[in-house]
Amino acid sequence: MLTALDKKLLEEIAELHDDPPGAFNIRKDGKGVQRRSLEGIEIRSKEDQPGIDVLVAPGKEGSVHIPVILTETDLSDLVYNTIEIGENADITLVAGCGIHNPGSGSARHDGIHRIIVRRGARLKYSEKHYGEGEGGGKRILNPKTELVIEEDAYAELELIQIRGVDNTNRVTEAEVHAGGRLFMFERLLTDGEQTANSDVVVNLMGEGSTARIISRSVAQGNSKQTFNPRLLAYGPGRGHVECDSIIMDQSTVRSVPEIWAENADAELVHEAAIGKIAGDQLIKLMALGLTEEEAEEAIISGFLK
């Protein structure tokens, strides 16, 4: 059912070699092609819209893979997924989208995720983007994630896009309730004529809610990146935003963090930095016998790790 190419894409985005260990749903070129529900993790198709519901029962532990692959050109795939992690469950969720665009038309995936992490639950969510193709057609990914973290729940989001995607517009919105914690780590590398925008809004709603957002990016060639992380505290929450970019060649990076508090006990911090690779870092690695290119590569891959 899955071709060698499909498997390669799945490996890239979800590190899947064979069947995923837990529950899974694989979507290919706009259609679900393989699915497995498990006791306590139910995956079912939506009736009114394209997409799936993933329902995790309270207290359940395990993993869910819901990768999407696109292998055709002139394809626009829009999908709505709703994911509910039951109270005190502990789940690793691997999403992500891999595009192989063989032609000159565009291949586009817009994935809209609604994720609810119920009281006391833990979610580790990872979303990796990957693109390839020889026809010169654009590879476009526009993920939107709406996240609700209920009381004392924890969510960790890892969002990765390293080369290969021409245009991406990422929107992430999170609501963190009392005692809830969010950790978000975004890593991005663009080159050539690629563009990437990332808008993040995190609302700290209740007492003891916390959020930490780390964004690391490298811009090469003529690529353009914009980051707009916003951290809003409506209650006594604590939050930290950190945007750190390495700028190279003729690229453009724009970073506009915002913090906003409506509560005297809120504590919010933002840090943003854009700069080229430091000369003494390159020299240090070259003095170990690396060429300048190898040194750059080592610095960038460490930075994005």
Partner: peptide
Amino acid sequence: GYAFQQPPRFKGMR
């Protein structure tokens, strides 16, 4: 080989 007087720091490199 040269051990720097002020070694640079690297984000992410272990």
